[in-house]
Design a protein around this nucleic acid. Structure first.
Lengths: 214, 214
DNA sequence: TAACAATATGACCGGGTGGTCACTTATATT
DNA sequence: AATATAAGTGACCACCCGGTCATATTGTTA
């Protein structure tokens, strides 16, 4: 975590450093990201940087914490509405909100992508993946609730379904890569929304032809 | 592609260089991988390396081509059996063979992981992703066939299903990460196999409780 | 054996990195 | 005005990188 000197900085300068760091860490993974570049973009001397942060890892953990906090803040309001929704609508809402978050904070979304690309184990384990843990246990709880309510077949493997739902993100990303050439949430959302619905339709109703029961 | 000098090399030395390169490119993505390290591990001088290959990219494309060729060779035999199988069995076979391939050639599997992590666009576009293109069109064709045969519901979005199936790989990887702490195909395959079956069960039969038709 | 071509070598180049530190400058307190 | 404390600076360190090139070694032909 940053030194007190960092918090003593005028707001403008502090946020300039933060946004320069976010920019760098969302373009390159931890190892490739450059402190020199961050200093250049933030117009501070290298020596100053090391008066604000202990080292590169210190900055990285700080930046990732900011992003995770922002994401949790964004999602907590959604989850509070869950009790009145079916599992299908819960999942759909989660996806749409996820896309909305990435649209509103593309830097944070890119930060997450680079995080998962990183090969530096020290850096990875230093970032508490609260977000992931939260989303996993969230899915599991949603599934259990839906089973209790009789919404979904109780014979379904909850853990498998949970991981399947988590991996849908990569399906959506692949869809955009295929359609737009890059992972971008700027395009018409209609398209992506209907793709999400197609995915959820498959998962809820299955693909097997029921008329062909032999 | 390598210079003729590379092919003039004694077999032993040539394969030593190849395996040193595979080792390096499966540990780090293109940018982070080090030519110096490869030379050290292969016991050749830096100058020698640049007599065999034009540059780093030349080596990378060569190594990736080897891996892709090996993978295609591994899968073509499987695909030839497809005509006699249902879609469910085709997909299951594809997954099991995929796991078997990664088990038999863990270096190649790691090579693919690092490839998808890489940020260097030049390096990425220089590697013709024949494998990916092949698997995508393969899935699409399998789905179309199954629809024609009446195996699966014709109202299912083929493209969405295709991307969903492709993304199942990440679900399997997450499963192993969750269960074993790392992506490793060395462990008991029983476990992974039954996880794959759980996933396929969801996709074929859906999760919605059919008794609860209101 | 002499001459020629092919190959092997590692010091070297320019440029990058994360991190340090003696020093300067600004601010606050006496 | 004098002092003490905090903050800012950039040259510098050791180490890495991908790539070059003059030179040395080897192999082959005449």
């Amino acid at each position: 975590m940053p030194q007190k000197t960092f918090y003593n900085l005028p707001d403008e300068k502090r946020s300039l450093i933060i946004s320069a760091a976010i920019q760098e860490f969302s373009k390159a993974d931890y190892n490739s990201a450059s402190i020199n570049q961050i200093c250049r973009n933030a117009n501070i001397a290298k020596g100053s940087f090391y008066q604000y942060f202990i080292d590169k890892l210190d900055l990285y953990v700080y930046i990732m914490t900011l992003a995770i906090e922002e994401k949790i803040r964004f999602f907590t309001s959604v989850i509070s509405e869950f009790h009145s929704l079916t599992l299908l609508d819960q999942i759909r809402l989660l996806f749409l909100k996820g896309i909305e978050f990435a649209k509103r904070h593309p830097e944070y979304a890119a930060l997450g992508e680079q995080f998962s690309k990183g090969n530096n184990e020290t850096a990875k384990s230093s970032v508490i993946k609260e977000g992931d843990k939260l989303s996993e246990s969230l899915f599991m709880q949603m599934i259990q609730d839906a089973k209790t309510k009789g919404e979904i077949d109780s014979s379904v493997d909850s853990f498998a379904l949970s991981l399947l739902l988590q991996s849908l993100n990569s399906a959506v990303n692949n869809y955009m890569l295929n359609k737009f050439g890059s992972i971008s949430y700027e395009h018409n959302a209609e398209d992506v929304n209907s793709f999400v619905d197609s995915l959820l339709n498959i998962i809820f109703h299955g693909i097997q032809n029921r008329n062909e029961k032999i």
